[in-house]
Design a protein around this nucleic acid. Sequence first.
DNA 1: GCGATCAGCGGCACG
DNA 2: CGTGCCGTTGATCGC
Lengths: 262, 262
Amino acid sequence: MDLVHARKLVAEAIQNQEMLMVIGDCYVEYWGRAASKLPRGKRLCLIKGDGSFGIHQNKKLRPVNYMMGAAIASEVKDGCLLLSAKKAKPKEEIRVHFYAVDGVHRYAMDDREDVRLFGSERELSGQLMTDLSFIEPGLTPMKSEAPFRKGTVDILAEDGRGRLVVIEVKRRKAEFDAVTQLERYMKQVRKLKGRETRGLLIAPEISPHALELLEQSGLEFYQFDYEVGNPRATIKGVRKKQPTLSEYLGTPSAPLLSRGKD
Amino acid sequence: MDLVHARKLVAEAIQNQEMLMVIGDCYVEYWGRAASKLPRGKRLCLIKGDGSFGIHQNKKLRPVNYMMGAAIASEVKDGCLLLSAKKAKPKEEIRVHFYAVDGVHRYAMDDREDVRLFGSERELSGQLMTDLSFIEPGLTPMKSEAPFRKGTVDILAEDGRGRLVVIEVKRRKAEFDAVTQLERYMKQVRKLKGRETRGLLIAPEISPHALELLEQSGLEFYQFDYEVGNPRATIKGVRKKQPTLSEYLGTPSAPLLSRGKD
DNA sequence: GCGATCAGCGGCACG
DNA sequence: CGTGCCGTTGATCGC
């Protein structure tokens, strides 16, 4: 395809904030937060109306080079179509040299809708807020998304013996960071409130190493199952996992507690 | 565009592992790890040779729905072109209902090159390994990327007084995570090696909260500047941050003044 | 395969 | 603006 013509199409599409696809044999350089070079090959350059800019190879989900909110320029120079994306903060630049352009496609995208997602951590946390008693009788919610100076506690509650309970919820397997996060919150809450405080990690699963760390810190893990669907995610059950030896000797077993009827 | 014809193009492109772009008015549903619905609107469906599948709106960098390594199927049904992406583990599915197709574009992508990135944390860590003396005289590198049971220590070194030094390198501003990570490594190394051990965090910047946490744990922060370019990133300088008041008074383990504010 | 971590993380919500 | 943190995180590397 004629590069001058291609450039004209590109300029018009950007002007109109259309979605723009340029396919061709190109060489890409980037410098800014890091730097990179991508030797010649055929790729897709995808440019969106808000200045999102991405170079896609025919593999992987993510673009190999990208920029958000870019100022985009085009020119024909030295027998190449040069597309460049620039941003000031942080100072970054991508340059795409097209030696040949196989296709330019532009579309005005009429789209007034946004995606609706179900099963986010926030939603699960909200579900738990409505009823904590099936984790433990007498456990009552006080505040969700409680903001502290350093971070936000998912759920703040009080147990049957008047102790403060800090709850961290994870929508997937809990790892180290979940435990350290809870530890941080515990330190803050204990210092601030100055009363006896328990820490609960609630997740569908926990890694062995994370569980080890958790138990060393005197925190507790509860497993929960949930199901995502339309229009909401629903908690199916919560059970205490891997009871400590002393707890195990004290109580026969930790039964699975279900909410509602089956 | 005729949906039956569009479907033929789609099937051929997928068969040949070409890059495929379908643009049209569609409605998208997803369920799997979470669930989502995207009401009707015009979007791009981008399918790559390795089964990467993404629905792109005309904004943002990331696809609003996506799947990697998907098995893709197409059919014309109820006056719609239905594209579906499925995966077994975890069990997921995306369904895209195209009410109208504005364009189908397919390209065989001849690309044998991979991106070369400069300025990654690994590279910076490697640069530091070649000479640690400008952090502190007598500091000598022992091992980089030292694997432990729970994680990998960036750099293991020894200082002029024979103490073990655990170094964590960050390519960008250090936050809580960096400190807790270093703390974990410290615990392991102390236990394993059983000798006096220091912990150093090296980053271009550190957040005040992270610095506070770091100092409470008796760890040290060094700031470093670097420049990325081709073909490598280069360390420009390292300097120790202003000593803490407690260090200045000579009581690193038992501070006289309480620093906590929460 | 799982585990741990990095990423030019991106994106969001709250201060 | 920065700060923290979630994400259907994805991608990489080591065991």
